[in-house]
Design a binder for these strands. Structure first.
Lengths: 201, 201
DNA sequence: CAGATTACAATTTACAAAACTTGTAACCTG
DNA sequence: CAGGTTACAAGTTTTGTAAATTGTAATCTG
């Protein structure tokens, strides 16, 4: 029987939750593995059975955070209505969620930015997941598209100014309407270009 | 007769040149106004007649650096051949110049990045200048385009992942062919979309 | 009197020493 | 023996203090 009364999975989740709270308050450089352990009533060394190091604990926090942020976007993908409209809504919603996160949860957003900068696997999976969602919407909107995944990559690259945490943060000072209008102008041009030579149908 | 034997314009230029050399070696945080002044044989206070502060001296260095970087791109705009091909070459050349600068002049590139982050006027002018060049090439390639400047803004936004210093630096670890291929895929899609409904001519 | 210097206050940086944190291995405990 | 703790070395951060830097105003000088 573990001393904390929690099984391994539960202890891990509690650790991620406590770390997430602390990171939200003070950022990922300043929170201490020792403090998280203290909050759980164990020594800091006990956490290394569950996380390979502080970096892995940070990865887990950001992964958890990204999981939550994916929910509203998945609802749009699974929703009803013309797929092209849903794709526009998807891109706008993603932008809005990121801008809000950057404003309201700056430390967690900065952790996401840092992992993005380091091309950490957590973030690479997140990007791949988003590409899959774009692919799904493109394939539905344009059934004659020969390679929807390649098209999704082009869309992702064209919209990186509206998704990459560094640029989302940098452009927070610009008005919402302006940034959102620019995103839609780019998205519409790219979609029109990608589908210019498709048979009508 | 000034003590240094230089008139005001010459002293200013010499200060920018010395600051540029020092910044190239140690970055903009570590070089000292006092050192630049010493190299010119004046007290540091004498430089404040020409620059409102250290930040203004850094702006002047980056402005000078950007001036030089604009020359090869201006040659493409002024060159001969199909305008659409020149636009592709312009975008590729810009990317290549930036990746090379990031590798070979990391401190000056970092200064450019910092000013970009702060939305400093030097950089805003640079971005506006590039939009003008894109506008020129678009108007030549597509004479029926109703608003080439608006189209240029869309092109700029779609290609921000290949021009913004933060992302250029972040993607340096990716192979050249991949990054360049991605840029061309985005550019081609955007151009095709922007020109989809133009009369043929 | 234009172009400089000197003096100075406020701020920032450099640096050494102390304190803290991270990750690991040996050991403990129920 | 699973799930812990303790001890420890190496590395990092913090703290206090001295030195340096920045920007300004008064003053100087040719």
């Amino acid at each position: 029987m573990p001393r904390t009364g929690l099984n391994a999975g539960e202890l891990k989740e509690r650790a991620v939750a406590v770390a997430s709270e602390r990171m939200a308050v003070m950022g990922c450089d300043k929170f201490r593995v020792t403090d998280v352990a203290g909050a759980l009533g164990v020594s800091h060394a006990a956490l290394y059975a569950h996380f390979s190091g502080k970096a892995a604990l940070i990865d887990a926090v950001v992964d958890d955070w990204l999981d939550h942020s994916r929910v509203p976007l998945a609802e749009i993908v699974a929703g009803e209505g013309p797929a092209q409209e849903r794709l526009r809504l998807w891109a706008l919603t993603r932008l809005r969620l990121k801008r809000e996160a950057a404003r309201k949860e700056p430390h967690l957003f900065a952790a996401f930015d840092l992992l993005s900068h380091r091309l950490r696997e957590v973030v690479l999976h997140h990007i791949a997941h988003q590409r899959l969602e774009i692919t799904t919407l493109l394939a539905e909107a344009y059934p004659a598209l020969p390679d929807p995944e390649h098209a999704a990559k082009v869309v992702q690259a064209a919209l990186v100014g509206y998704s990459h945490p560094k640029l989302v943060a940098e452009y927070l000072c610009l008005p919402d309407e302006e940034v959102e209008g620019n995103l839609l102008a780019v998205l519409d041009a790219v979609l029109k270009g990608l589908t210019a030579e498709l048979p009508q149908g």
